[in-house]
């Protein structure tokens, strides 16, 4: 094999490495705001999880919140758990945002921003679509209105393969 062919194979393998998306979602524990009980992401296995990182100053989050409310309404009792992790340093900023854009799904607070580096968050908001086996199936950086159908379709597929739909 010539040197250029070897290089091509090496480059190709790097690209393929990048396209392998499913990787285990790092586990973390939290107090479930719906039940006030301590739980963890690992404890949600069997559920499809939409893990979203957001901040009060993030403009696209104003559009993603109504969408997540819709998702929660449609699939909340059909195997989808939405966890929206706020990374504001001041909880008051988050509360002000939530008064303007109310959320019917679970809001978690990470004021010390311990989770974003673990999840390698690249922008605000960033959403992770985690399947029923705790694998990150897809990462969505930012939020655009025209992505809603695509995200919902993907979640429906994941709920179907988890046996919820």
């Amino acid at each position: 094999m010539s040197l250029s062919s070897r290089l091509s194979v090496l480059l190709l393998s790097f690209f393929l490495m990048g396209s392998v998306q499913a990787e285990p979602a790092p586990d973390f524990s939290f107090i479930d705001p719906f039940t006030d009980e301590s739980t963890s992401l690992g404890g949600l296995q069997g559920q499809v999880v939409y893990l979203d990182f957001w901040a009060s100053w993030c403009i696209p989050c104003r559009q993603s919140f109504p969408f997540m409310n819709e998702l929660h309404e449609r699939y909340g009792d059909r195997g989808l758990t939405i966890l929206a992790v706020n990374v504001d340093e001041q909880e008051a900023d988050a509360e002000r945002f939530l008064q303007q854009f109310p959320a019917s799904f679970r809001i978690l607070y990470d004021h010390d921003a311990t989770l974003p580096p673990i999840y390698n968050v690249m922008g605000m908001p960033t959403a992770y679509l985690i399947d029923h086996n705790g694998q990150i199936e897809e990462t969505k950086i930012g939020f655009r209105i025209d992505q809603r159908g695509e995200i919902e379709q993907r979640l429906r597929e994941m709920l179907r393969s988890a046996g919820h739909l």
Binding site: F53, A55, W57, D93, A113, P116, V121, M122, G123, M124
Partner: peptide
């Protein structure tokens, strides 16, 4: 500045 640390910059 990490993406989650841009609150002050966004003011």
């Amino acid at each position: 500045v990490q993406p989650w640390e841009r609150g002050t910059l966004a003011e």
